[in-house]
Design a protein around this nucleic acid. Structure first.
Length: 672
DNA sequence: AGCACGCCGACT
DNA sequence: GTCGGCGTGCTC
């Protein structure tokens, strides 16, 4: 007997192994095996059992497998197909896709593997269904949404719904009812969330309603915890899985519904190694098993809206907040008119003061951590750069270091300019640390908390900051990205975006969309309960369409504008993109490699169907010590582009270029 | 990925 | 001389 094994290594080929007679009775597709690989042992997955009649060349050279790890298949045919699709689509080795998909499992057979697997259906039916009695009454819009999704679930056909609901419109309750309906029909549900730490409130609500039936898998768990959650799913004790990105590959049988919360979130795209988008993989998984998908967002991505308009996805709207709470008014503060350097403008200070007097809370967002953006020599203009990356070092005052935000580099801040020996070094630009300091000076009686990568590195730090806000021990929360999402703090009545322009002029086609989403999301953090909220957005570009439309909640207008821009410039969703990055330690080899790659692109690609831009130095032309050049491919469809690119990659590999690594990003979220 | 092999610098 | 640095090549 011979087996097709996909080894968990970045190999292009599926390998063939022999199965020794004593293991034949244990063999089945979807079980993991240990195999000899060159001089080592490696783990792999059985993906096919070969017929005796099939010809196998060089029978003598085929090694036998060493052992079978799993007592039962850990992947069914549909999940194997999904991994195969993902490997093809993202041009990433199949074995590595399997490795990531099965990363929740222990590498070897644990002693406490369950002897028997219950059928999911059986356990759900047998269960006492007391949980979930405290379901809040739904608004008319929510009821309609739930009915539509229930209808889809009962049809057992593949369908995707965009649940477009303004912040605070009660999307979570719709998810809960949909998941409940799915469970009642004897099927499991997967709920994808962008980040566990930020989604703790959503998880808490699910657990409150479904109790033990909820399993949560994320990187914060120990290996044992992760395994036991996975086993609860496999044994049919848990029918609801909540998890981040990689949970989309969890081997759960009989999935009827996949929810993708905040579908527009960039966290769904893995940026290293296997660059997959969990939202898109979720949709493909559902398609393969005739399941229903709910994509939830207050600010859907252009891709998803486009799919609604072309009829691929169906649209459900929750246009109002629950209890008809108004969306908080957004006031634009024009920074061109400000008199001081500080980002705490008089308008903002006044608003903060008012909220503090009312014993309410304030949320401030600034997309840059550290104290100052860079250090500048006032005499000669020198700015200390990172030795490994093409960026300036950021000054961190508390730590008394200058730090690179892209690699691990840290150094003592210079006291004199290393170039001209001048003594007039200035810390320019503003980060969250400086704002925290300024706030403390301005409001000495208020308790101020900062939430960014620097203050949340310790375990449970997130939790401490949030409970401190919940208990109203603190009055002002200043933070980076992580304060913009999912926070549900009823006492926050003022939210401020300190500098909306920060991401607006990045050389990236999505910067306007991101700015719009960010303002809308930050605004959504206020006025969620009884007290009305207020939002201040500070900008140098008050007339920019993303800022102007966001400030008036004109989603459709922004969308029309952005659509026209994307169409005109040939960007997604109207054209598909693949980014190719070449990197290496030596600049010359990367440049030479890029030139060769360009030749091969010209040779193999049909340039009437595929536009090739590049090679050009990537926006960070040096990162972590590696020199980087890149290409951007554009086309109507990715299929054709991927097929031709495969040939180019093969040819490039044949040339035996040394010292150049190639990274492929299909559907890149950004081109930086 | 992970390991072996191989070819150059600075140590007993 | 040879220990070990990491660039390169291979995996049924």
């Amino acid at each position: 007997m011979f087996l097709h094994i996909s080894v968990f290594r970045p190999l292009e080929e599926i390998l063939i192994y022999r199965c020794p007679p004593e293991l034949v009775k244990e063999v089945s597709v979807g079980k993991r095996v240990i195999v000899p690989l060159k001089t080592q042992r490696a783990t792999g997955l059985i993906i096919k059992i070969l017929d005796h009649k099939e010809k196998i060349k060089d029978l003598e050279d085929i090694k036998p497998i060493i052992k079978i790890i799993d007592p039962y298949p850990v992947m069914d045919e549909s999940l194997i197909s999904l991994c195969k699709w993902a490997s093809e689509y993202y041009l990433f080795p199949l074995g590595m896709v399997f490795k990531i998909a099965l990363s929740c499992l222990p590498p070897a057979k644990p002693p406490y593997y369950p002897a028997r697997i219950h059928s999911l259906l059986e356990t759900i039916r047998g269960e006492n269904r007391q949980i979930g009695l405290d379901a809040p009454s739904l608004t008319e819009d929510q009821k309609k949404a739930v009915e539509i999704i229930k209808g889809a679930l009962s049809r057992d056909t593949f369908s995707v719904y965009l649940l477009h609901g303004v912040t605070g419109s009660g999307k979570t309750e719709v998810y809960i009812q949909a998941v409940d309906a799915c469970n009642r029909s004897g099927k499991g549900a997967i709920v994808l969330v962008p980040e566990i730490a930020i989604t703790s409130q959503l998880i808490a609500r699910f657990i409150k309603r479904f109790g033990e039936k909820v399993a949560v898998i994320h990187s914060g768990l120990t290996k044992g915890e992760r395994l036991s959650e996975w086993l609860r799913i496999k044994e049919g004790k848990a029918h609801i899985l909540i998890g981040v990105r990689s949970a989309v590959f969890t081997p759960m049988d009989n999935v009827g519904l996949i929810v993708v919360d905040e579908e527009h979130e960039s966290a769904y795209k893995q940026e290293e190694g296997f660059k997959y988008n969990a939202r898109d993989v979720a949709i493909m998984r559902a398609r393969m098993i005739n399941a229903t998908v709910i994509l939830g967002s207050a600010t859907p991505s252009l891709e998803t809206l486009h799919n609604v308009h072309t009829g691929k996805y169906k649209y459900i709207s929750l246009p109002q907040r629950i209890n008809k709470k108004p969306l908080p008014p957004i006031q634009i503060v024009d920074l061109r008119k400000r008199k001081t350097d500080s980002l705490l403008t008089p308008e903002l200070q006044e608003a903060i003061k008012k909220r503090l007097c009312n014993k309410e809370q304030v949320l401030l967002f600034l997309n840059r951590r550290g104290f100052s953006r860079f250090i500048l020599c006032d005499d000669c203009g020198y700015v200390p750069p990172c030795p490994n990356c093409s960026v300036s070092l950021v000054y961190h005052k508390k730590e008394r270091k200058v730090c690179c935000h892209y690699c691990e580099y840290k150094a003592d801040p210079p006291d004199i300019c290393p170039v001209c020996r001048g003594q007039n070094l200035k810390a320019l630009g503003t980060g969250t640390e400086r704002i925290e300091e300024e706030l403390k000076n301005l409001f000495p009686d208020a308790k101020i908390l900062r939430m960014d990568k620097d203050t949340t590195s310790k375990r449970h730090a997130h939790h401490f900051i949030l409970t401190s806000m919940e208990k109203k021990e603190a009055q002002i929360l200043i933070g980076t990205q992580m304060v913009t999402k999912g926070l549900d703090l009823p006492e926050i009545t003022l939210a401020g975006v300190l500098l909306a322009d920060n991401m607006l002029y990045l050389p990236d086609f999505r910067s306007a969309e991101r700015t719009f989403q960010l303002i809308t999301q930050v605004a959504g953090r206020t006025g969620r309960k009884d007290k009305p909220g207020e939002v201040i957005v500070q900008t140098f570009n008050p007339d920019h369409y993303s800022i102007a439309h966001a400030s008036r909640y004109e989603f459709d207008r922004f969308y029309q504008f952005e659509k026209a821009y994307r169409k005109g410039a040939g960007y997604p969703p109207f054209k598909r993109l693949i980014r190719i990055l070449l990197k290496g330690n030596r600049a010359e080899s990367v440049v030479a490699g890029s030139a060769l790659f360009k030749q091969l692109l010209d040779k193999y690609m049909d340039r009437t169907k595929i536009e090739v831009a590049g090679p050009v130095p990537a926006p960070f032309h040096k990162l972590r010590g590696k020199h980087r050049w890149h290409f951007l491919l554009k086309s109507q469809s990715t299929r054709y582009m991927r097929n031709q690119l495969k040939q180019v990659l093969q040819a490039f590999h044949m040339e035996g270029i040394r010292g150049v690594e190639v990274e492929i990003d299909v559907d890149p979220l950004h081109i930086l």
